[in-house]
Simulated scan of single mutants.
Amino acid sequence: MTTRRSTLKLLAAGSLPAMLAMPAARAQQPLLRQLAIVVAFPAGGATDAVARLVADGLRGKYAETVIVENRVGGGGRIGAVHVKNAPADGSVMLFGPAFPMAIFPHIYKTLPYDPLTDFVPVATTSKGAFALSVGPAVPASVRSMADFVAWTKANPDKATFGAPPGGGQHFAGALFAKQAGIPLQMVPYKGGAPSVVDVLGGHIASVVTPLPEVLQHVKDGKLRMLATTTERRSPFTPEVPTMKELGWDVVFQDWSGFLAPARTPADVVARANAAIKEAVASPKVAAALQAQGTDVDINSPADFARLHRQTWERYRDVVRSTGFKAED
């Protein structure tokens, strides 16, 4: 208890300023020595690119050193398991798209992690849609989705699309093929970047992939973007129609975000959320994300948790509608 007598003693000893400064000192938590951002997909893809942008914004703000680790394999499962088993102290976080958390529970009979209990949502950074694009394996005369549908029916042995198996791209392509009644076969890839390399090389007919992974190739005339999976036309590609407006109920626009191991303290999660929010909202990172064709979308941990569960439930219904059978 601080009394008038004790206060006078502190003043006399010169200790009151230090006492008053104590709460502020506690609020200014020291930087972590290192943050490892785990990306479960190959370097060069859209997820990796966004992770590195945010890492630059967190360096010196949240941790002294911020590194991006690409732990590729299992369609994202290897990276997720690594973070699940990491220390719950804010020093290791998973960054990635929704599908390893929202889709995999509905397509694999066994999964080495529980998306809803083994992780705590920290912050979303963006939401992104997919685009169906065709490359040189498809005749230059194919300029629209109607042309593509006709071409696939006439060339069923060549009608392919590349996507990571079990991802949102996979189900966007499968749902489109089912609704359009076309023989479009998926060719599996570990990530979007390798599939784009192959469509550019004419090894596959098309790709369903996040907009940022193909946007520059479309601008350069190397790929033709025929449709997007947005609810409304993307501001980044206003000339490209949505699948919805063309008559197919194929709307996929999912979150990308950071998740930490379960049992990470709430104050650590809140601090990480604030740092990520500041990094993503900075002019440099926001401009870079927009230049890539990514919509900035930042949520609080509580809002992200609700969104996470809603996405999990939505994909449960999507998987059922395609008739996809669980594996493993």
Rank of each mutant, 00 (worst) to 15 (best):
R33F: 01
L8A: 15
A25Q: 09
S141P: 00
I78Y: 09
P210F: 05
A159M: 09
L8E: 15
A80S: 13
G45M: 08
M225S: 03
A80T: 06
T229P: 04
P301C: 05
A302Q: 15
I276M: 07
V285S: 08
F104Q: 10
R4I: 02
A305Q: 05
M1C: 11
A287T: 05
P87H: 12
P283S: 13
P212D: 07
R271D: 04
T311S: 14
A46H: 14
M243F: 12
F258W: 02
Y315H: 13
D295S: 07
V250F: 04
V38Q: 10
F119G: 03
V251E: 12
R316T: 01
E313A: 14
A305D: 06
W248G: 00
V66C: 08
P115G: 13
V39L: 07
A180W: 03
T152E: 03
T294N: 05
P165M: 08
G192S: 13
R71G: 00
A275T: 09
P183G: 06
L94V: 01
M101R: 09
D198H: 15
M19T: 14
G57Q: 07
R77H: 00
G60K: 10
G168E: 15
W312N: 15
G191D: 03
L35E: 07
I37N: 12
Q28P: 01
P112I: 11
D89V: 03
A163H: 02
D295P: 00
F324N: 03
P121A: 13
P183M: 10
K325L: 11
V319E: 11
G221F: 02
T322K: 01
T152C: 14
V268M: 12
E213H: 10
W151C: 12
A159K: 08
L32F: 06
A279D: 08
G192P: 06
A281K: 08
K219G: 00
V134L: 06
T110A: 14
H308Q: 15
G192C: 12
G73P: 05
D267F: 05
L94F: 12
A140G: 08
G79T: 00
S144M: 10
A25G: 05
A131M: 11
R71M: 08
I298S: 05
R314W: 06
A55K: 11
A80W: 00
S256G: 09
L111N: 07
